[in-house]
């Protein structure tokens, strides 16, 4: 019993010291919460960081979280103490909820020239790319490519799909809304049916896409543009995006700056930077999504072969905000047992 507790305290302090972000730096640090595939070394993060740091005399720091919805959850938990200046990677579906949270400050960016499906316009959130949700199929697995939602729901239950949790992930939330847009009140019953085909529900897009590319699962919820990634980066047409007769759900991704930011002007400059070609031209072949400005560089050839989306589907964000909790509970009850 002679040991004293005191030697532990410096050790703990050492951890704290390590844990605390380096404070005494000359350049201001701009912290951006995003999803992990955006911040990853092969994602758009490093290129955008390099381009912005050339002009800003600052240190841009992307922090990758599980997925888009998790960003909002995290900001809510941290409240006013959040170290983040900006958040990037939520979707327009979440905008009313985000505005009601009071966490975000007006962007000060003119978004009137942006080109996105549904003509999203907002004074707080800046759209940075858009894409269409799609089920990706590994054609070497022997799984049939579904041509409609009914096809997917009624398909061979031994051919599994990996999806994402709508409580943490934007494509997961998108799928929930997509089902609602297609099936309305029947959505819960269809989820129950689909649950026979669900291999796993992951917190973010990366985990499920990882399972898909590793061959653990033949179908995954992703985007039509994922097909272009495999063609351009891997030179293979093994993976196909399934075009659904009912139409594809649109996902417009947005960024916003936080009221608690210690660098509000720098944050506003970053939001403006989003709508420049330096940012936008990085998007198609790193984030594998469509740019939102008219004068972006032409898209690579592989994009032309992607499924044409004739019927972009979306649910009015106000309706989403009013029903998200109830719909999530309905989803949970339908796919849990």
């Amino acid at each position: 019993m002679r040991m004293s507790r005191s030697p532990l305290l410096p050790l703990l302090a050492a951890v704290f010291g390590l844990a605390a972000p380096a404070a005494a730096q000359e350049k201001p640090v701009l912290t951006v919460y995003t999803y992990d595939s955006f911040a990853a070394e092969w994602g758009p993060g490093p290129k955008i960081e390099a381009a912005f740091e050339e002009t800003c005399a600052c240190d841009l720091n992307f922090v990758g979280l599980a997925d888009g919805v998790a960003i909002l959850n995290r900001l809510r938990l941290e409240g006013a103490t959040s170290p983040a200046d900006l958040a990037l990677g939520m979707t327009t579906d979440m905008v009313p909820e985000m505005k009601a949270s009071g966490l975000f400050a007006p962007s000060g960016v003119d978004v009137s020239k942006t080109v996105v499906p549904g003509n999203f316009r907002d004074d707080t959130f800046v759209p940075f790319d858009y894409s269409y949700l799609a089920v990706m199929v590994d054609t070497q697995s022997g799984a049939a490519v579904p041509t409609s939602f009914d096809d997917l729901v009624n398909g061979d239950p031994s051919q599994k799909i990996a999806i994402q949790d709508p409580r943490s992930s934007t494509p997961g939330l998108g799928l929930m809304l997509w089902m609602k847009a297609v099936y309305g009140d029947e959505a819960a019953a269809k989820w129950k049916q689909l649950s026979n085909r669900i291999l796993t529900v992951t917190p973010g897009w990366s985990e499920s896409y990882n399972l898909f590319t590793k061959g653990e699962v033949p179908l995954v919820l992703s985007y039509t543009t994922s097909e272009a990634y495999h063609v351009i980066e891997e030179g293979t047409d093994r993976y196909k995006a399934a075009a659904f007769a009912e139409g594809q759900y649109v996902q417009v991704e947005v960024a916003g700056r936080l009221t608690g930011s210690k660098n509000p002007e720098l944050a506003a400059r970053f939001l403006a930077f989003i709508l420049t070609p330096e940012f936008q031209n990085v998007i198609p072949t790193t984030n594998w999504a469509y740019p939102v400005i008219a004068d972006a560089a032409p898209l690579p050839e592989a994009f032309a072969a992607l499924p044409k989306v004739e019927k972009p589907l979306a649910i009015d964000p106000e309706t989403v905000a009013a029903n998200r909790e109830a719909w999530t509970a309905e989803w949970l009850a339908a796919i849990g047992r």
Binding site: V69, A70, N73, D165, S168, I198, V201, G336
Partner: peptide
């Protein structure tokens, strides 16, 4: 593999970290 096979422990974690 998601909500279909969730124990109380996992449900607690998800209720806090997700919901």
């Amino acid at each position: 593999g998601g909500p279909a096979a969730s124990t109380l422990q996992v449900a607690i974690y998800k209720a806090l970290s997700l919901d």
